[in-house]
């Protein structure tokens, strides 16, 4: 039997998880949790491209999720666009903004870049909070229905709202993962990983480092934007929290905790950090405390991230 490539293996594992997990759901509520994990996984896959491949950090990516989310709320009302096209508009705006913002700030390195991206996130969040007339302010705003479930019903496929979003977001995550895995082994992805390894050597082999960083930034912004749109469309409601600082931190934390260099690892990180708060409710008022403790322990003992560390341990046992 030919050996599976890492790409096919990752996609198979993900597809299997999407299809098989519902068999173990104790209630319909878990479709919702699953869909949330997939949306977070999609946003975090974008972080894998920016941080895991290219080695650049962003603490403002929730800003792009906010743009994607609010595009779905506002474009149908003000421009008469169907929600699906509104999401596409969100992608275009996020991509263009990432390009404009990224040009000057991607020259910065390390924590300077972190602070600059943080500023961008805060800016978007402030606009969403303060432009009450347009965005509804901190109370949020209603998002119209995507309408696809109704179409499926007309075609004779009658599934619940929870099931629909679970599978819809699952498919979106699979496509997102496929693209990120394509990129990894492609000439562009190799150049991104090269500049992560040594910018100076990357330059001497002809890699236009500034341009490639910008491409990674734009691509990851598109991921965040789509994730924001999916979140808004399934909740049929959106608040500025989606663009907030905590959401940006959450994305980076999920990626690093799971293993920022690996698509599957980062998605696993998204799964763990989405599920943990649900599981930890047994600790009642100590929930946050235990969550923090678990995260610290994971980073201390699984330094490279959950998946890469575990894989290394498994391999070590084989030898």
């Amino acid at each position: 039997m030919p050996r599976l490539s890492a790409k096919s293996a990752t996609l198979l594992v993900l597809a299997a998880l999407v299809v098989v997990s519902p068999l173990f759901f104790p209630s319909g509520y878990y479709y919702r949790v699953g869909a949330l994990i997939f949306v977070n996984g999609l946003a975090v896959t974008g972080i894998v491209i920016l941080t895991g491949y290219a080695g650049q950090i962003s603490l403002g990516h929730a800003g792009f999720a906010g743009i994607g989310g609010y595009a779905c709320a506002l474009a149908p009302v003000h421009l008469g666009l169907p929600p699906a096209l509104a999401a596409v508009l969100g992608v275009l705006i996020s991509g263009a903004l990432a390009y404009l913002v990224g040009r000057p700030i991607l020259r910065l390195k390390g924590y300077y870049l972190a602070v600059a991206t943080l500023g961008f996130g805060i800016l978007v969040s402030m606009v969403l909070n303060n432009e009450r007339q347009l965005t509804g302010g901190p109370d949020g705003i209603i998002v119209p229905d995507l309408g696809l479930r109704g179409l499926l019903k007309d075609w004779g496929l009658n599934i619940s709202n929870g099931e629909f979003w679970y599978f819809f977001c699952g498919i979106a995550l699979l496509i997102g993962a496929w693209i990120a895995l394509n990129l990894r082994q492609s000439p562009t992805g190799r150049a991104l990983r090269a500049l992560h390894g040594s910018e100076i050597a990357a330059q001497t082999v002809g890699i236009d480092v500034a341009r490639l960083k910008l491409q990674a930034f734009v691509i990851s912004a598109v991921y965040a934007s789509v994730a924001g749109s999916l979140l808004a469309l399934q909740n049929k409601f959106i608040t500025p929290d989606v663009a907030g600082f905590m959401h940006s931190i959450e994305m980076v934390t999920m990626a690093v905790l799971g293993g920022a260099g690996s698509v599957l690892g980062a998605i696993l990180g998204a799964g763990v950090l989405t599920l943990l708060p649900q599981v930890l409710t047994v600790f009642a008022e100590f929930e946050q405390l235990v969550l923090g403790l678990v995260m610290m322990l994971m980073m201390i003992f699984l330094r490279e991230g959950l998946l890469p560390s575990l894989l290394r341990k498994l391999r070590g046992r084989d030898e």
Binding site: S186, P187, A194, I219
Partner: peptide
């Protein structure tokens, strides 16, 4: 100045960047 995060082969392939680079979209969609 080696790309420590890559394999030996990938390091050598990186040297071909100017010859192998192309449209990003083609790379994303394989």
């Amino acid at each position: 100045q080696i790309f420590q995060n890559m394999t030996v082969l990938e390091n050598a392939i990186a040297g071909f960047h100017l010859q192998e680079r192309g449209a990003v979209l083609a790379d994303l969609l394989h």
